[in-house]
Computed example of a mutant assay.
Amino acid sequence: MTKNCFLKDSKIFLALIALFFSSCAFAQQNDMQPEMENQFWRNVQFGGGIGLGFGSGYTDISLAPSSIYNFNEYVALGVGLQYKYLKQRDFYASHLYGGSVIGLFNPIPEIQLSAELEQLRVNVNLDGSNTNSQDYWNTGLFIGAGYRSGNATIGGRYNVLTDKNNIYGSAFMPFIRVYF
């Protein structure tokens, strides 16, 4: 066997070894990727709220989807969107839309503490007058506590940034929160 033939055979052998190990390495990477993705989605929950209110000349429609990521059994962080339509016949029509960030803390499985920062754009159109229409941003910071059972929590929250121009009737609001 000549030296050139030996070098040629050794190069082929090394190329085959390199190919074998690189395919094993890629196989390991591909096997890990779905597991990591599945782990992420196992910790995500979706929920939100839908509201309808009708009265004598009054309409209130709201939609508020949200999602949270559970870091562990105690802490979760999430985001939400919100749209609300309010109309009082012969007085005003209003559109509110925006988003929120929520943090949840469960010191024990039955108790849920929350902090939620909400930013809403408020558009109010007074009937009969375009000069009195209003467009502004409203910020709320809600601190809350509730009783939790399974995926549902019932409790109350308080807007610590409330002022005389508050878009809500009161700084304190009850809530029901459900995540699937």
Rank of each mutant, 00 (worst) to 15 (best):
M1G: 13
M1S: 10
M1K: 09
K3F: 05
C5S: 13
C5F: 14
L7W: 10
K8G: 09
S10W: 06
K11W: 00
I12R: 13
L14W: 00
A15H: 12
A15T: 13
L16V: 12
I17H: 06
I17D: 10
F21V: 14
S22I: 14
S23E: 07
S23K: 11
F26N: 03
Q28M: 04
Q33K: 11
Q33V: 15
P34A: 02
M36P: 02
N38H: 10
F40W: 13
R42E: 03
Q45F: 03
F46W: 15
F46K: 05
F46V: 15
G47Y: 08
G51V: 03
L52W: 09
G53R: 02
F54K: 05
T59L: 09
T59Q: 08
I61E: 02
S67R: 08
S67C: 11
N70P: 07
N72S: 06
N72Q: 05
Y74Q: 11
L77Y: 05
G78H: 05
V79A: 13
G80H: 00
L81D: 00
Y83R: 07
K84Y: 00
K87G: 02
K87L: 01
Q88I: 12
R89W: 04
D90K: 13
F91S: 12
H95A: 09
Y97M: 09
V101A: 14
V101I: 13
I102S: 15
L104V: 03
F105N: 04
N106W: 01
Q112K: 07
L113M: 07
S114V: 07
S114T: 15
S114H: 06
S114Q: 14
S114K: 15
A115Y: 08
A115C: 11
E116H: 04
L117R: 01
Q119T: 14
L120H: 03
R121A: 13
V122K: 08
N125T: 12
N125M: 07
D127K: 12
D127Y: 10
G128Q: 02
N130I: 13
T131F: 13
S133F: 01
D135P: 06
Y136E: 00
T139I: 09
G140A: 11
L141M: 10
L141S: 06
I143H: 03
G144I: 07
Y147C: 05
R148C: 03
G150Y: 01
N151P: 14
T153K: 02
T153Q: 01
G155F: 02
G155I: 04
L161E: 00
D163H: 12
K164R: 13
N165E: 07
N166H: 14
I167C: 02
I167W: 04
S170C: 05
A171N: 03
A171V: 05
F172V: 08
M173N: 08
F175L: 05
F175Y: 15
I176S: 04
F180W: 11
